[in-house]
Design a protein around this nucleic acid. Structure first.
Length: 192
DNA sequence: CGGCCGATCCACT
DNA sequence: GTGGATCGGCCGA
């Protein structure tokens, strides 16, 4: 069952990031369908968040998709090599997003292994946002895709996520964000 | 149009 | 724990 648009248009991006833990992400891209459930996310809270690409209400061709209604993909290139996948949230003109930093692969494992160049799925297989995009076949050209479509989508697979299984910490790799670098906007599923 | 830099990863020490 | 890879986006001129 796909997540409804109303899941993405909620105004509390930090809670959306937390609620995305345990939800399933799927892609139907060349090679077949791959997917898994989300194990790590970060919230980026728009124009007042120094870590966000939309800080200060900055609008560029790249960031424009963040200003659209929640429920689309915002994918961009980082360090010249890695695509990073974000889920746009909130209503139109409020550029909030959630970065998907880790998944637990469940579907299309052979294809994910092939895309990764690895020979087995270990703990470090999908524990970073660049790796997640690589194994799911997501590229920055997919930015703007509607998540209610059949290319990239999310489902509520009925996984129960207990509050005491959630670890919260500051976000990674955003030291430039000054005081906002310390905000507790990162959510991880603890190892079972 | 040139130059700087990044929401990372991996090999190597 | 650290440094190099690598290139599109952004800004200033």
């Amino acid at each position: 069952m796909k997540l409804p648009t109303s899941f993405y248009t909620r105004r509390d991006v930090v809670n959306v990031a937390r609620d995305l833990l345990g939800k399933y992400i799927y892609t139907d891209l060349p090679g077949g369908i791959t997917g898994g459930y989300i194990t790590e996310t970060e919230a980026y809270a728009g124009i007042t968040d120094k870590a966000s690409h939309a800080f200060g209400n900055r609008r560029t061709p790249r960031t424009e998709v963040m200003y659209r209604k929640g429920g689309r993909a915002y994918v961009y290139l980082c360090y010249g090599i890695h695509s990073l996948f974000n889920i746009v949230t909130n209503v139109e003109d409020i550029p909030h997003a959630v970065l998907v930093r880790g998944i637990n692969p469940t579907c299309g494992k052979d294809l994910m292994l092939k895309r990764s160049g690895k020979s087995l799925i270990d703990k470090a297989f999908a524990n970073g946002p660049g790796k997640v995009c690589r194994i799911l076949g997501i590229h920055w050209r997919h930015s703007g895709l509607d998540l209610s479509g059949d290319t990239i989508w999310l489902e509520d697979g009925g996984r129960k996520v207990r509050e005491d299984k959630i670890q919260i910490s500051p976000r990674i790799g955003i030291d430039y964000a000054e005081e906002d670098a310390r905000l507790p906007y990162r959510f991880l599923l603890k190892k079972t």
